[in-house]
Design a protein around this nucleic acid. Structure first.
Lengths: 393, 393
DNA sequence: GGAGTTATGTTCCACCGCAAAACAAACCTC
DNA sequence: GAGGTTTGTTTTGCGGTGGAACATAACTCC
């Protein structure tokens, strides 16, 4: 069935599986759990849960917190929380910003640097050296945490296993190895910006489920990226090319796209398309468009309606194929969500086959600058939570 | 991470996992394996592999076959093969046929009944009673096998967990429970025809990988159904509505579809659209269209080119989002594959972003009447292979 | 304030399943 | 037929969990 590695389960597999289970249980819980709570919700005995928790405590992956107000009879339990000394570094380079952020196992931002700038068509060496300087400064001024790994979010197609950025059209970069140019003590794993931003919706903290577990994420940057999330897992495709919803064809007779196709979604709902459709300069602030709509500007209104129609066609197609009727809008599309929603919902209702049974919903992502950086850190921490046994040594 | 049940791994988990691993290894192997082979390819010791194999043998899930010609020095191994006495029943109701088929663990068809007919707008009770008669006859004349479960493939949306057929537009059926009307000794689980047919491509026999593990399957029936298969697993969506690629919008200004949307793929590549576009009656044999193209009939040629263009737009969208660049055509689209391929490939090359790196491929499924029935049986047997421990008692 | 109650966390022992190694079996080669 | 080689089985040891008893720390009631 699944193409899992054909490796047999041995005794140690049991231990690693259960260590992971205990850590995930604590991470996922909204309130701190005692050892007995962990035993109850994992189905193990108190003896086993306690022993596993002790191992995780010794490695710093869990912490014992102070008891709160006692609640009832019986010996009070000692609350367990994810370890605060384990953290990961997430970085991001985008058309408009540069960011480095350190997030700990509890999902708290331990430190961050975000710099605005225009990196469209920038020199990779120069830009990455600047990111390196920012990151080095951030790491130097960090409280006492153990940074266990790093990730880098990029607005393009990456081959994560090879550490290769294949192409990032909006940066004008292609075929380079950012990790080598960054030359940090921690080698970052690469990831697509939209995939990683989607992770911040799927997980509100490492191992803790976010508001949705199955959704389509749309990342409105200069282009329109996307990601499909199923059971909390981002579908990355067979080799990282997934999520290019910006180049789904909305109208075969539509305008030519620089990708070579015609009528791509990006030609209607990309930032440039929206701004120029509304008669705004391409470097206008994203909030300006919203302001004009509120003032009743017909050009702005028209641009948003055009975008809503195109989004409706493209998203309906994806929903019909994947049956994921929840859409989360990020980036500039998230800022315009309230203006897009009525028309978009109407289009989806017409074009989605299951709409009569279960109408699609449209949410806006929490506006967070450089969500990709947080997502990159979450991905690293997700690896820790998935297999804590590797971090006990 | 994954939303797996929060159940801890205990000792018995090890055993069930390894039993499954051994059975899957034997099923997946193209040639029979000895106990020592199993040990080598699973990573266990010969002692463990042998013990697990003996348990599976005792339950009939494995058989020892006769040794072939001895090959070299050393004690010859006894070849293990999937048990021939374990089988499953797959059934199918479609617009044009009724089928029941029994498949064993080795993937061999132990017995089958296929009846042609016109079930469009048929009475569910009448049709299912006929299927019941056919199936009962089949089961009565079966050799000595143990039928461990049953499945029923239907051309529509099903809620498998509730045993409910929500709607099957081409049959004109909706909101009914086929299992109750069938009233067989084995209660069949329901499945979508395209999903199950896709399984016959993903698996050439229970647990044995087929020609592709990641592909988009297109089922050309009266409508156009589909399924996305990732790592051998059919993506069924959050509630069974996935795979409705027939209603992906290809042209928002296109003809109205009975689903309420406009320009759906089905309006260009559905059987009716193809036949009427070619000037053929709607009940023409599928081969007739191919014959006309070979004779150079311009109307037939035009209809296929129109379908190719529409398929190109719809499939490019799915490939851009999911990054699954392999397409397998089934049903009438499979029969027309050779005529569709050149134009379709050209459209995909233009519209798929990754086409320059890795051009999409278009295959035709092996033409098998009632592939859904085989898929339904494979699904049941897949459950056995996934967790053989449940069948040892 | 002390005895009883209740729930948590720990310790000890038994059982299960796999690994490792020794042993038995079957076939080939010389 | 003796030695070599590989397969399959038996025995022993170890890791890890389950279960039961025990220690601990609160609350409650008299």
């Amino acid at each position: 069935m699944a193409a899992e590695a054909l490796s047999s389960a041995r005794q140690s597999t049991l231990r690693t599986a259960n260590l992971g289970l205990v850590l995930r249980t604590v991470c996922a819980a909204p309130e701190p759990l005692s050892r007995a709570d962990v035993a109850a919700s994992t189905g193990t005995t108190r003896a086993t849960a306690s022993r596993l928790a002790d191992e995780l405590l010794a490695a710093g992956l869990l912490d014992e917190s102070e008891r709160g107000a006692p609640t009832g009879p019986g010996r009070p339990g000692t609350p367990l929380v994810p370890g605060s000394s384990i953290a990961a570094l997430g970085m991001q380079v985008d058309a408009g910003l540069l960011a480095a952020r350190v997030v700990d196992l509890r999902g708290r931002v331990v430190g961050e640097r975000v710099e605005d700038g225009d990196f469209v068509g920038s020199d990779p060496m120069t830009t990455l050296h600047r990111l390196r300087a920012v990151t080095t400064d951030l790491l130097a001024h960090l409280p006492d945490v153990r940074v266990v790994g790093a990730g880098l979010a990029l607005p393009g197609i990456v081959d994560a296993s090879a550490g290769l950025l294949l192409r990032a059209p909006n940066l004008g970069w292609s075929n380079l190895r950012p990790a080598e140019l960054l030359h940090l003590p921690l080698t970052p794993t690469l990831g697509n910006e939209a995939d990683l931003a989607a992770r911040t919706v799927a997980e509100s903290a490492p191992g803790r489920p976010g508001p949705h577990r199955d959704f389509l994420y749309l990342s409105g940057q200069i282009g329109v990226g996307g990601a499909a999330v199923l059971a909390g897992q981002v579908l990355s495709g067979t080799s990282g090319w997934a999520g290019e919803i910006g180049h789904v064809c909305v109208d075969p007779d539509g305008p030519a796209c620089r990708c070579g196709s015609t009528g791509c979604l990006e030609q209607y709902a990309g930032r440039h398309a929206l701004l120029s459709g509304a008669g705004l300069p391409l470097d206008a602030a994203p909030g300006e468009l919203a302001a004009r709509i509120e003032r009743g500007d017909p050009a702005a209104r028209g641009a948003v309606d055009t975008a809503a129609r195109a989004l409706g066609v493209a998203l309906a197609g994806v929903i019909n194929v994947l049956d994921i009727p929840t859409v989360v809008l990020g980036g500039h599309l998230g800022e315009l969500a309230d203006f897009l929603r009525p028309a978009l919902q109407e289009h989806l209702r017409r074009r989605v086959l299951s709409a009569g049974w279960r109408p699609p919903t449209i949410d806006a992502a929490v506006a967070l600058p450089a969500a990709g950086a947080t997502g990159a850190a979450l991905k690293v921490l997700g690896d820790v939570v998935a297999d804590p046994a590797r971090w006990l040594g």
